[in-house]
């Protein structure tokens, strides 16, 4: 396992993980995305969507890089419509 260089704040337990976005992302992409690999646009870390840190206790759903905390994707579900806002992502490879 990679060395943990996170700060105490980054180890907070306020997040869940990318599995929680499976439904909304499947709607947005038309396929399961939890097995897809994302490359962070800030630190270049590559990780499964399932391994990302996801914040749900906020107005929308925020998917962050598990290595550096950068916002990768913001998802909203407003009146039944999925909104996909890609922020700091360089690449997504589908499994």
């Amino acid at each position: 396992m990679a060395q943990d260089t996170s700060t105490p704040a980054e180890r907070s337990t306020a997040h869940v993980d990318g599995n929680a976005l499976a439904g909304a992302l499947a709607l947005a992409f038309g396929t399961d995305m939890t097995t897809a690999t994302v490359q962070c646009g800030d630190c270049d870390d590559r990780h499964r969507v399932a391994a990302t840190h996801v914040y749900l206790r906020c107005p929308g759903m925020v998917m962050r890089c598990p290595a550096c905390g950068a916002t990768e994707i913001v998802l909203t579900e407003i009146r039944g419509r999925i909104g996909l806002h890609v922020r700091r992502v360089t690449a997504i490879s589908f499994a």
């Binding site: 700060t7 704040a9 306020a14 914040y55 206790r57 906020c58 107005p59 962050r64 916002t71």
Partner: peptide
């Protein structure tokens, strides 16, 4: 007082 956050809490 609910705590909402979109990311890790910065200290």
């Amino acid at each position: 007082f609910p705590v909402l956050t979109a990311g890790p809490t910065p200290l």
